[in-house]
Nucleic acid binder design. Sequence first.
DNA 1: TCTAATTGATACCAATTTAGTATCAGTTAT
DNA 2: ATAACTGATACTAAATTGGTATCAATTAGA
Lengths: 170, 170
Amino acid sequence: MKVLTKNTDYAIRALLSLAGAKGEFVSARAISLEQDIPYQFLRRLLQEMIRYGLVSSKEGAAGGFRLARDPDTIRVTELIGIYQGPVRVSECMFRKQICANRARCVLRHEIMRIEQVVQQEFEKVTIGKLLADLDAQNARIAAAGIPSGERGESDALSVSTKKPERTEKQ
Amino acid sequence: MKVLTKNTDYAIRALLSLAGAKGEFVSARAISLEQDIPYQFLRRLLQEMIRYGLVSSKEGAAGGFRLARDPDTIRVTELIGIYQGPVRVSECMFRKQICANRARCVLRHEIMRIEQVVQQEFEKVTIGKLLADLDAQNARIAAAGIPSGERGESDALSVSTKKPERTEKQ
DNA sequence: TCTAATTGATACCAATTTAGTATCAGTTAT
DNA sequence: ATAACTGATACTAAATTGGTATCAATTAGA
Ligand code: FES
Ligand code: FES
């Protein structure tokens, strides 16, 4: 079972890039490279974000995207809502009928309780919080005395990652 | 987002039928009708359950399935594990690499925490508990003075359910 | 002993969702 | 002018989920 799909995951990381840029416009291309997200896929995600008022954009050369809201107000739940629909534990809530069968309906109490719990937990996680955690982590790495040359684009902790080298036009 | 897929949902309901039969063998056909689960689909689910030791079967005419374990020990988490794989909030755990990128890794703490919460919540729900809830619910309906003729197979609370009348051979 | 109901085992198909690619038109800093 | 962008959208591929069909072996009961 997979709670976060790629697009939500990508969206979070893209927003982290923007949050890190502190108001500067960042191009989709730059985010794509920084976070290793397929370029065109990312662009669609960003368009979605614009529609939902999460980011704003500047067209043309030297254009790009920046956050349109305080990162502390952008919750993972909201992103899940945008990219995966609202968190539903079972389908039965989607039906326009109430309790087509009793057995499943018994599940309903439990299901709704768990839905709430999941919702609440994700509600606690904001882009701002994640960014703070990220900064703290980086600070820790720096403090550990690793020479700055060692911690470049590719993660020092990764194990032989030889990316499959996606080829992509445009 | 959907946490419980059809097969898990079906599996739970099938087990509820078996738990209700108190040791008697119940045929796949009977369960299929009682719970409105596609017959062949259900059979596959039951085979899975046998493999995992949840139920046992008797072949031949008058054969069927019955629980092989105490319903109180059968947890929804276990069923999710069987039919949907273990609960994973994000994919990053599947990769054989540790933290291909730092940004996503920050998510990891939160992700693991939430995974645990979901796990724990579903862990609390057993077939035995669901059956007890179901019985309590039925008792309540009976106590409400509804004549027994009124509460047959089709749920009294359902709203115009006119099943699409699945046609199915065998 | 014949037969109908049943499980065992699999192979297959359809629908949906998720992931990723391509393209063209319009905008703008340089 | 032009290269680097966004806006919009159409398309394709892969994976997952949901469902159907078939055939063989088993068994209770008429
Ligand atoms: S609410 Fe969905 S079956 Fe009762
Ligand atoms: S653990 Fe998956 S990216 Fe760090």
